[in-house]
Design a protein around this nucleic acid. Structure first.
Lengths: 229, 229
DNA sequence: CGATCGATTGATTTTTGTCAAAGACGGTGG
DNA sequence: CCACCGTCTTTGACAAAAATCAATCGATCG
């Protein structure tokens, strides 16, 4: 479902501007009506829902190449926040331009597909939060992220950089940052993965996937399997 | 985004058959290629992901009028299971027929919208699992379900029937059924809601919503607010 | 009537959160 | 260059939440 070069060109033509976003900046606040969508050129962007104390739950994490809020084109507004994690560059695509894009039925179908992939990822995250313990959640998240980064050439299948603090990871996995710290130590001690200052190394991809009960088929990547280990 | 009568008729014309499904029956198993989608006419249908021990996590619950697996039309297969909870009647819409339906751009947009609503609900569930304690999760779920049932005339805003066992509720909230039993008692003791043999009564909608930090705007219902209490 | 499934309860263990305090590290300004 | 500061990480002690183990109870069904 990758766009053809022509489709890619059409999307790029619909970009009205590219914005530079500082790290840790709210890009879109929940509830505001939107007249454009955003495509990540560079950096990490997160989608979060905050509880009444302002504590956040990540409901998505987006990498370069992802449409962050394509759904806002159809829904008109968002029920969650979008914020940069790292420094980021995002391309703005006005909804008016999107209207022209979806006139092309094939492209419309691909955009729909892209939002359905997001939904599939949401479901995998639900499984993670609902059925796994803290260590399983982290293992699952690392496997997913490794697979996604690999698909865009940002991981070699074992090592990648991921600019997330332990607090971010905690907000992803629905645990406290203190507990996340202990989980990371455990992953290290059990020789599954290490994570030091944004460098992640997966020592035993197979065992990590088993620990997190990870099956990446929902990502629809044609990723070559890693050797067991 | 409700379909017009004409669109409704077109959808109904695309139905190839209506199936009667016994309770507790798997309708679609994860990973199978699909050539049709299913629309619920009557009954409760759930979407679940199972862990390696076969323990399930609900990732969605569908009511009459919902397309259960509209996304399979675009994705071609599912990464989760679909099963009946109660006795159900589902209308089968072959994907071939769907192709004809989405030729109508306005209807295509509405179907897209419907899958985006699902995704928004997924995100609300992520918040529930990630940020709320067991009682908050149950409170949130009851509020959501009350709002949804009300929209289709199956709740008066305080009372409705919901044919789920305590084990189902546990699989929705990501806790054990034993713990769910204690949560239900607590909800009763704190005069928030009662649930006895599939009859749910919400005693203080306002307080229950507060306990579950529920804000139903993601459901896109034009529901009149309930009196506080 | 026995069998089965779901609901309920108690006792106990495990997991996770909370509170409190250091330690590490990079960046900034003097 | 170095002291200071803020942010992130790490650790310990303790409390709370949830899981687990083990029964019992109650209703429904063949």
């Amino acid at each position: 479902m990758a766009p053809t070069p022509a489709e890619q060109a059409a999307i790029e033509k619909a970009i009205s501007e590219v914005r530079q976003i500082p790290p840790r900046t709210t890009i879109i606040e929940a509830g505001r009506p939107l007249r454009h969508s955003a495509l990540i050129v560079e950096g990490l962007v997160c989608r979060t829902i905050s509880d009444r104390d302002g504590l956040r739950q990540f409901v998505g994490l987006h990498l370069p190449g992802d449409f962050v809020d394509l759904h806002s084109f159809v829904l008109q507004n968002l029920e969650h926040d979008i914020a940069s994690v790292t420094q980021a560059r995002i391309a703005i695509v006005p909804h008016i331009g999107m209207d022209a894009l979806v006139a092309d039925v094939a492209l419309a179908r691909k955009l729909w597909f892209s939002t359905l992939l997001d939904a599939a990822m949401h479901r995998a995250w639900l499984f993670r939060l609902g059925r796994l313990d803290a260590m399983g959640r982290m293992a699952h998240f690392l496997c997913e992220t490794n697979a996604r980064l690999r698909a865009v050439g940002l991981s070699d299948g074992r090592r990648f950089t991921l600019d997330l603090t332990q607090n971010d990871l905690a907000e992803i996995c629905g645990v406290t940052s203190i507990h996340m710290n202990r989980i990371l130590r455990q992953l290290r001690e059990e020789n599954l993965a290490t994570m030091r200052s944004s460098l992640v190394e997966i020592i035993h991809p197979g065992r990590l996937a088993a620990r997190g009960q990870f099956d990446g088929s929902y990502l629809y990547l044609d990723s070559p399997d890693l050797p067991e280990g």
